[in-house]
Design a protein around this nucleic acid. Structure first.
Lengths: 226, 226
DNA sequence: CGACCAATTGATTGTTATCAAGGGATGTGG
DNA sequence: CCACATCCCTTGATAACAATCAATTGGTCG
């Protein structure tokens, strides 16, 4: 049985809406699981009866076109939840970018529990509304921004989202390589690489290692992001 | 006071989850309003304390970049709801594409009512999850598809979504002009027009008037959509 | 009929994808 | 500890696609 008391996302995940007895019942339904980097938890089109809370690590949501090109349509961070409650098949693949830890529920049990606990459902609704806003904002980036605007916007958003986890004062470590960045931004790996090189040449960022980023001139970056 | 009994979206909107007394109380909170084509109901950044159900017509959700370029991030059809429950400001503008009719609620009252009626909240959650799936699927189109694939995908989706309203056997009437299509697909008006012309030249569609579309060869269209 | 607006068409430019090759880090086995 | 292989990233040359700039057409309404 999971120990929710020591859970690092206890205060932020949807379970935060549950108290003593409810939490005990909820945690009895849970199965804790490690997901190694690169492993796919859910395949698209599959009717996976599974809901999960992310405890640690980062996962990606991927939609693939018929010809194999991929678009990452969402990133899942600790305290976010994964899966499609209420019985629809998953329209996208869920793959771990780093080693991850999740807390898994059987979907039927989860649905029943949610129906009986309006507070939980309320949290779920709020999170889904937030995700929808984020997805829609990302549509502006994909549809209307140039390559340099995309890369600048991306680095700013990653800086914000990773700051909460990393707590390094200066920079942050991306949980993925160049191809993944390209798949997030709707670009090729070459274009992505060129834009990063240019940002470094202009002194706006430093790239001390493959995945590390230090933003030197945040104002310039925000101007570039459009 | 609104008359929900004769409401054309009675069976499909979120209110479908309410019965006799609940519906009566809910409808006392509602204000029926006409929105003429082109009129903006909600501006981005504004903290509009407003939730609405669409009864008739079509509206668009728009995000604008700093330089004025626009991306349509969602279309709102009858029975869909508009607004951001639970107190966040709207991240996008909501503008009517056609003359529309909506059923408006004060957000605070709506939130309180939703909190007290789990069935309503459940419907809201399901709809929001569906919208999120749709938005994410659209991200593949924006990030990875070519102009011709975008236009073909668009016509197919419009065919599906409008068929439910129109019920014309052969074709359908788009509720918007070329610039709006371009803003949905992340293209310019010229590119959009050229792709439509090419589809007509290839005999795949007919464009009997500015906004009318008849799909002749649906298979070819699906092949094009990628 | 003429004015106006939306859509189309044409010519050209610019950006990004594609194709191709060259670094540079990491890890393994000799 | 070094040679080598591998993987990922970068860089370069070229091509394709869509954006932009610029007219023109066509449909609608006073």
């Amino acid at each position: 049985m999971s120990n929710c008391q020591s859970c690092p996302v206890r205060g932020r995940a949807i379970c935060a809406s549950l108290d003593g007895d409810e939490l005990a019942a909820f945690s009895r339904m849970a199965r804790h699981q490690r997901v190694p980097a690169g492993h796919t938890l859910i395949w698209e089109g599959e009717d996976v009866p599974l809901i999960a809370n992310v405890i640690g690590g980062v996962l990606k949501l991927v939609v693939a076109a018929a010809d194999g090109r991929e678009q990452i349509v969402g990133l899942v961070f600790p305290s976010d939840f994964i899966g499609r409650p209420f019985g629809k098949e998953s329209p996208y693949r869920v793959t771990a970018l780093t080693d991850a830890e999740v807390c898994i529920y059987n979907r039927n049990s989860f649905d029943a529990f949610a129906a009986a606990h309006p507070h939980l459902q309320h949290k779920l609704l709020r999170r889904t509304l937030d995700e929808l806003d984020r997805a829609r904002y990302w549509m502006l980036l994909l549809g209307r921004k140039s390559a340099s605007q995309k890369v600048a916007s991306f680095l700013l958003e990653m800086s914000d989202r990773l700051a909460r986890l990393d707590r390094k004062e200066a920079g942050f470590e991306l949980p993925f390589g160049r191809q993944q960045i390209a798949d997030i931004l709707g670009l090729t790996i070459e274009t992505t690489s060129r834009q990063l090189t240019r940002l470094r040449a202009d002194g706006i960022v430093d790239l001390p290692s493959r995945r590390a980023v230090v933003i030197h001139d945040r104002d310039a970056m925000e101007r570039m992001a459009g």
